[in-house]
Write a protein that binds this DNA or RNA. Structure first.
Lengths: 208, 208
DNA sequence: AGATAAATACCCTGCAACGGGTATTTTTTT
DNA sequence: AAAAAAATACCCGTTGCAGGGTATTTATCT
């Protein structure tokens, strides 16, 4: 019997998965949560073998939740179940310790396949996911382009719609400094073009 | 027997609804589509009594699809099933002729309730929907700030990260035209500032 | 203590996006 | 057929963001 906990803020989808697994003899859902905090509670109490989690969630996002789970219970396998197939998110989930990654626009049957594959010790990544970028760096994960503290703060402000000069004022630094951070981030993240950094900031924001 | 057609681009959710309705004796799903175009085909061929449709969909969105369906088949009832609870969208769906509006973060059981209510001739709106704005204007709906067809198309392309000149090229129009549409949208939507239109486009897209 | 990374701040260039007009043609609605 | 709305295209000017440098101070990590 495989025990599973689900975290997902779209109740309709949770219900759907429940219905699907109701007739699966060897899979049992032992807990459901609508946010990351509730998920952690369930995990601590019931220690499922598999956690199926959304990335974009209230309170604690899926990436942070995964890190915490893997830290406390390295044996629990985590599968991401999300709408986003951005490389960044996939790689962050892998870095956090996820064993699988499912997209919501794939058939529900895939959920069963993924749960069984991961329970068996394999990894399971949706076929739509481009894993090319991991080929060289799966083991060395945390070497990836990581933003510095100031950069992340500025990125957050960009995501809130602040302009460069507003950010400079609120941080008591020069406009040129903020601009420099912007450029460095663009370079680090491999972006190009006018709106791309804002786009990136927004994708991260909802995002999780 | 109530006949239903579903349009929804998240296959997982379609599968979930299918599972749910499998054991409902008096509801039968006679067609499924992943985009608006396919939905219209199904509707024309099979003429279901109820159409359950997402709003954000490829090719033809739920609002446009609803208008077309209600124009050709006024007796077919349309229920919106979406993640968005924006006033704007709700009122557009009502204007388009929808009889119900469900949010994806409500229990799946609600789908059955809505289908049955609407099939019976009632309307069904998710309790999370704020309908206060309709009190004065249900009949006169179409007075709201609504983007035109070209504007929406351009907004979609903006959301995809296309620049003005790329959009102009792909639409075989002048750059100045696209710029004009941008400005008009900014005015209509009450926005201001460089990235705001992109931000708006992205917020609508993921909408969520 | 020495090396490395981060944060700070400035230079210059170019262009895409905004903000404000006006005007013509096409489509849609009445 | 007339009126209204949408789509087309152009004008002007301003500014913020990006792309390319360089350089100094402050943390941080061996």
């Amino acid at each position: 019997m495989i025990t599973v906990a689900i975290a997902e803020d779209h109740q309709a989808l949770v219900d759907g998965i429940n219905l699907l697994l109701e007739y699966e003899e060897n899979i049992s859902i032992i807990g459901m949560a609508n946010d990351g905090e509730a998920l952690l509670e369930i995990v601590r109490k019931k220690q499922p073998q598999i956690v199926l989690t959304d990335i974009k969630m209230p309170k604690i996002d899926g990436i942070a939740a995964t890190k915490l789970i893997k830290k406390e219970f390295p044996n629990i396998k985590v599968i991401a179940f999300t709408m986003f197939d951005q490389e960044e998110l996939v790689s962050q989930m892998i870095a956090a310790g996820a064993s699988g990654y499912l997209l919501k626009n794939s058939p529900l049957q895939e959920v069963i396949n993924a749960i069984e594959a991961v329970a068996f010790g394999n990894t399971f990544f949706d076929k739509a996911i481009d894993l090319s970028f991991t080929s060289e760096g799966v083991t060395t994960t945390t070497k990836r382009t990581i933003l510095s503290k100031s950069e992340r703060e500025i990125l957050r402000l960009i995501g809130q719609g602040k302009t460069t000069s507003e950010i400079a004022t609120s941080r008591f630094t020069a406009v040129s400094t903020v601009e420099k951070h912007r450029k460095n981030m663009i370079r680090k993240l491999g972006l190009s073009g006018k709106g791309e950094l804002l786009r990136y900031a927004l994708e991260k924001k909802y995002n999780f």
